[in-house]
Design a protein around this nucleic acid. Structure first.
Length: 432
RNA sequence: GUGGGAUUAGCGCAGUUGGUUAGCGCGUCAGGUUGUGGCCCUGAAGGUCAUGGGUUCGAUUCCCAUAUCUCACCCCA
């Protein structure tokens, strides 16, 4: 009679990362880290737990109240497991605002939790790269962030046939809607909630909701027409809008630097997070099976001001999740063979003292060659089989005869070729 | 939160129109006379047929619920 056993499955929406999974994740995050470091970003980190209110304030009702893992700790504090990084990094920046040098370029690679129904491209635990620039209001920082985002896909070999960056500006969007609907900021917010769902709800319902907000048929028709306008046409509706200037400069620069082939103006990009104020963008995977935004970001002017009495530190950044990135890389065949490193198994025989083998092991490791020794005594064939299955590239074989001659046999497990090598030249065989 | 599909050995799958010991492939382990692995041969281990109820003389099979996976919706990365 044995006791009932516990489940070996990870919790719903979470994943175990076995060594082969880690190899993949380490590979693509490693490449991204390297690229971000080259772009002069520095890595930071923060806690996984934060007070609930830092999300409740600005992230949006849906995310803060329904999609976070919230709980009360033993001290009675209302906490959230972080569903995103931006409030944390804004808090960190605010805490040292008087000593940091701006503009500041920071990135992190961390895991996040959101309580949602899992599906393709979306789980409950995911890892995300976050890269942000704080302390620059200029369109140049918007451009930098978007060009870095594009670069992160290009380092994997992605080209303009595989993804597209859809770009809009919330200030411009708000000004255009305000002028069309002849309303104020509050009215714009209510109207934008409706038109954000324009493609997702019934046309009748859409029109009814807009009418309830005071719009007439002429305004509704006008809003429809916005979606087929070019950027220049949109800008001409509100030529004095600060957002128009920002977006105009941004697109001029994208054009001039050859990045416009990756980008498109899209008046429909709003983004769900409430804290965005200026440029917003979403990167779409052009493969039809990955039919959701791969990642996105934008500018947020007021987050640092949640923590300190400052309204001059604006941020712009993006978050790139591992789930959608992996789907992208797999779908477009951008993942190479990740094998590679030399790994040596020292095999053993019973008639040679054990310490003769551990000496070889130490020599290999001291020379910077990954190596292990076989445990127990089994037939050589079994030892080689183990080596092969364990991912070894080479085996070292030394019996009494070789020991007496001061040599070992090094077997290449791929080609099955053997070479007799002098004991002192083992490391040299491996190029070390 | 809403709806569809799925769940049989570690993995991938058969199967039972409800009837005694549920199969196959791969994988794992052991052996094929103890110093050479990927092929081959032999053998073994491994399943309360997702879980809990119901119908029935009898349920892995039919019904219901739950869980998990998966796809879409909502929302979002």
């Amino acid at each position: 009679m044995s006791t009932p056993k516990l489940s070996t499955r990870p919790l719903k929406g979470t994943r175990d990362f076995y060594p082969e999974d880690m190899r993949l994740r380490n590979w693509f995050f490693g490449k991204i880290r390297e690229a971000l470091e080259l772009c002069a970003f520095e890595e930071y980190n923060g806690p996984m737990l934060e007070p609930l209110e830092i999300y409740a304030a600005k992230s949006g009702v849906e995310l803060a109240s329904e999609q976070t893992y919230n709980f009360t700790d033993r001290g009675g504090r209302e906490l959230s497991i972080r569903p995103e990084m931006t409030p944390t990094v804004a808090r960190m920046v605010a805490a040292r605002i008087n000593e940091l040098t701006f503009p500041l370029r920071w990135y992190s690679v961390q895991n996040f939790y959101r309580y949602e129904r899992p599906q393709r491209g979306r789980l409950r635990e995911f890892w995300q790269i976050n890269a942000d620039i704080f302390g620059s209001d200029s369109y140049e920082a918007d451009f930098e962030i978007i060009s870095v985002a594009i670069n992160l896909l290009r380092i994997f070999g992605a080209d303009e046939s595989m993804f597209r960056v859809h770009i809009n500006n919330r200030r411009l969007f708000g000004d255009v809607i305000a002028s069309v609907a002849k309303t104020d900021a509050e009215g714009v917010k209510a109207i934008s909630k409706v038109i954000d769902r324009r493609e997702k709800i019934e046309r009748v319902e859409y029109e009814n909701e807009l009418r309830m907000l005071g719009l007439g048929d002429a305004e509704i028709t006008k809003i429809d027409s916005l979606y087929s306008m070019s950027l220049d046409e949109i800008i001409s509706l509100c030529p004095d809008s600060k957002g128009a200037a920002e977006l105009g400069e941004l697109f001029r620069t994208l054009e001039a630097t050859g990045l416009s082939k990756y980008c498109v103006f899209d008046f429909g990009i709003i983004r769900g997070l409430d804290y965005y104020t200026g440029t917003v963008f979403e990167v779409f995977d052009l493969a039809p099976e990955n039919n959701r935004a791969m990642f996105g970001g934008g500018r947020y002017d007021n987050l640092v001001g949640l923590f300190v009495e400052r309204n001059d530190i604006s941020g712009v950044g993006f978050g790139l999740g591992d789930v959608t990135l992996e789907n992208f890389l797999r779908t477009h065949n951008l993942i190479p063979d990740l094998g590679g490193r030399t790994l040596v198994l020292v095999t053993r025989f019973d008639d040679v003292p054990y310490e003769k083998y551990t000496a070889i092991l130490s020599n290999l490791r001291n020379a910077g060659i990954a190596a292990m020794i076989f445990f127990g005594s089994k037939k050589l064939g079994k030892q080689l089989e183990y080596a092969s299955k364990a991912g070894c590239t080479h085996a070292i074989i030394m019996g009494a005869g070789e020991l007496a001659g001061g040599v070992v046999k090094i077997k290449d497990l791929g080609t099955r070729e053997e070479q007799v090598v002098e004991y002192s030249r083992i490391a040299k065989y491996f190029g070390k």
